[in-house]
């Protein structure tokens, strides 16, 4: 592989490195170990959600319900911990709730033929509503049992010197990468996004695969909800508002096509890091949060334009 080919295959990575280089020139503290770990930790929640989103987007779908699932799962998890449920059981049950919510969207999409945008928009609204009903609009504390402390450690502690959320995200990355590149399910995910009709005639159980990808997305959204709840020691009913957009932005920045059939999980991680670095840089440069949104939007636009120009020429 020559340099030019490498550059065109890894535009998002080059973008990330470029961004980091610029920021480190402007602010010397940026490249410090503490700040790097900080960025990784801040990015991990979006990265976990975005990895689930990657599966969905490769099948040419979209999942707008992840932010709401995050909030609902967080509330469920906080109550379970508050009831002194064993940690593993509480985590497992919460992930199952996320999987079930995602699979429900999948069933609606696969069997009722509803457009993913609409089906998950409905899911986003209803699940948010359910969260508000369940929490009565108030935060749910994880309580004061011993399990609450180990739960807090799950979100705030360190393993091998890395913040736990980063370790979780890394494990999820390896699993997702393996599924997409080394399993039959992964092949089917790409095939459905590439051409659903061809996939069906090739014997792919299109409905089952679609339900599975939305279940994966829901599970990872719930996992993000667990991490957030653990760190805050409480579940907020409005947690995860707008997270679906950050996740979609990370996927697209990572070079995955919204048209489906193409994409890499590692690209999504790079996309999430670009957003994370940008947030961090704007913070350490003391840019007002109002301007941050404008700057973030502009960078995403720039990245996507550069990427699509490359595709049109190639």
């Amino acid at each position: 592989m020559n340099v030019k080919q490498f550059a065109s295959d890894n535009k998002s990575l080059i973008g990330l490195l470029l961004l980091m280089a610029i920021v480190s020139v402007i602010n010397a503290n940026f490249l410090g170990v503490d700040n790097m770990l900080n960025i990784l930790r801040q990015t991990s929640i979006n990265a976990v959600i975005a990895m689930g989103m990657t599966f969905v987007i490769i099948t040419a779908g979209i999942d707008l319900s992840v932010g709401s699932i995050l909030a609902f799962a967080g509330a469920v998890c906080a109550s379970l911990i508050g009831m002194d449920t064993p940690l593993v059981l509480a985590l497992f049950a919460t992930l199952l709730v996320g999987a079930a919510l995602g699979a429900t969207s999948g069933v609606i999409i696969a069997y009722a033929g509803v457009q993913p945008f609409i089906a998950t928009l409905v899911g986003m609204t209803m699940i948010r509503g359910a969260t508000l009903v369940y929490t009565e609009g108030r935060p749910i504390s994880t309580g004061s049992f011993d399990v609450a402390e180990s739960f807090y450690q799950f979100g705030a502690g360190y393993t091998f010197g890395l913040p736990n959320p980063v370790v979780v995200a890394a494990v999820v990355l390896i699993i997702c990468w393996f599924i997409l590149t080394h399993t039959k399910l992964g092949r089917y995910v790409y095939a459905i996004g590439g051409n659903e009709n061809v996939a069906r005639l090739s014997g792919v159980n299109v409905r089952a695969v679609k339900i599975t990808v939305y279940a994966i997305s829901g599970t990872l959204a719930a996992l993000a909800g667990i991490i957030l709840t653990a760190r805050l020691e409480s579940a907020q009913p409005t947690a995860g508002l707008g997270y679906e957009l950050d996740a979609i932005a990370a996927v697209v920045l990572g070079g995955t096509s919204l048209m489906g059939g193409r994409g890499r999980i590692i690209g999504t991680i790079i996309g999430a890091l670009i957003i994370g670095v940008l947030n961090n840089a704007l913070n350490i440069m003391d840019v007002s949060s109002y301007y941050q949104m404008i700057a973030k939007g502009a960078v995403i636009l720039l990245a996507v334009v550069v990427d699509s120009r490359g595709k049109a020429n190639g």
């Binding site: 092949r187 790409y190 095939a191 590439g194 051409n195 061809v198 996939a199 090739s202 059939g261 193409r262």
Partner: peptide, 18 residues
Amino acid sequence: KSEGLIQMHPVGSNMSLT
């Protein structure tokens, strides 16, 4: 074009899909 092969995918993964 619309039923046989995924045009944007490689020869290999198309061939082995079924």
